[in-house]
Simulated scan of single mutants.
Amino acid sequence: MSRRRNCDKPTECRIENKTLSVNPHTIPNDQIQAAAALLRAGETVAFPTETVYGLGADASNPLAVRKIFEIKGRPVYHPLIVHIAATSQLPAWARNIPDAAWRLADAFWPGPLTLILQRSSQVPNEVTGGQDTVGLRVPDHPIATALLHAFGGGIAAPSANRFGQVSPTTAQHVHDKLGSRVGMLLDGGPCRIGVESTIVSLAHGEAVLLRPGGLSIEAIENTLNKKILLAQATASKVRASGLLDLHYAPTTPIEIHPADELWRRAHQLAKLGHKVAILKLSDDNKCINSNGITCFQMPLLADEYGRDLYATLHRIDHASFDHILAETPPVTQEWVAINDRIRRAAHSGHS
């Protein structure tokens, strides 16, 4: 029997003993206050940001933070990102904050940028994976903002999914993967960006890009008026969220192929009796379904592709395909984050 019943009212429904708020435009303040109270009590709350849904806990409470790792099946050495309500809260969580960090925060917070800085003494080891650095960001979503202000502290929140799997961009994705293990789930509708935040380390002097994401590298460089370094080109040992080779992976194995090889591989698999999903990008009017092959025409613009990617992968997983074949995205600056996510998703060893 399903744990979720249909909800006729726009405020909330119950998942066993859990609360699911629905219709993001009518979430009342008492629901935000209830979520904040759960966080103060050491429980978890899943909530929307502009990037993906996060699984949050009180970042200053080690026991609460451990629940995140237990629910996700996340390795304890893998650090979390702390979400804060405003740039003015930076000194409570970080020390030796360089001028470049303030400039980036002023330019892009709230927004999809995570800064890695030297951590303050109040940050628990559970949040940082034992490192001397911490990831911080101010999310750009009204529900996340309201929750952070009501709670009054930092919320440690990785993506609200099982570790290494496709990130959730709707509340339904969270419920499907984590169910009643989450203390409360706030529904803010589909995420506006759909790809995780860009992570930049400023912990040891120079700005180093650790993970491309929802904020472009060009925008960061224009603000700093200098090129930022790539982690691969430095001796940086900083660990951060979403940097493992296998990450963002659907249950269905995924392969990446250029357009001219895509259909040949699809037909090869279909002849073996496999059910194949194609993520097609090129606009050549060939997105047709045939025996054993279902074609998903993906957007031609990088930001739209990013917004649709995880939702499409969730749909494919639910439809029980045997293989996903993704057309190789362009290698231009706008597509850096998409290429990163697709490459990691395909690193599962299935293919």
Rank of each mutant, 00 (worst) to 15 (best):
V238C: 03
L243S: 12
P258G: 15
A231E: 04
I278C: 01
A219I: 12
A231V: 15
C295T: 05
G242W: 01
N285Y: 09
L209G: 04
A277E: 11
Q268S: 14
D260Q: 11
D283E: 13
R264K: 13
D245E: 13
N285Q: 14
P212W: 03
K226I: 08
A235W: 07
I293C: 03
A302S: 09
A277P: 02
F296L: 06
E221F: 01
I254S: 01
H257C: 09
K271M: 08
K237M: 10
L262I: 05
V238P: 00
L210Y: 03
T252E: 02
G213Q: 04
D283H: 12
A231T: 13
L215P: 00
I217D: 05
L246M: 15
A249G: 05
C295S: 04
K286P: 00
L262K: 01
N285C: 14
L279T: 03
A302C: 04
D260F: 05
E255R: 11
K280Y: 12
T234R: 01
K280W: 08
L269N: 03
A249I: 04
Q268D: 05
V238A: 12
I254R: 00
I288Y: 11
G214H: 02
T234C: 05
R264H: 09
L262C: 01
N291F: 13
D284G: 08
A235H: 14
K275G: 04
L224W: 02
I217F: 07
S236N: 13
N225W: 14
L300A: 12
L281R: 07
I256F: 03
L215C: 02
C287K: 10
V238L: 04
D260V: 10
P299M: 06
E261V: 06
A302D: 02
D260S: 10
C287Y: 11
I256T: 12
D245H: 13
I293E: 03
A266H: 03
L243K: 13
K227C: 04
Q232S: 13
Y248Q: 00
D260H: 11
A302E: 00
G213D: 03
T223L: 02
L224N: 08
P299L: 06
K237I: 14
N222M: 11
A219Y: 05
P250A: 15
G273L: 06
K271R: 10
H257N: 08
T294V: 13
L210I: 07
I217H: 07
L281I: 15
T223H: 02
Y248L: 03
L230F: 09
K227F: 05
S216N: 07
N225C: 12
N291Y: 14
D245T: 13
K227S: 07
H274G: 04
L210D: 01
K271T: 12
L246S: 11
G214N: 04
A219D: 15
H274R: 15
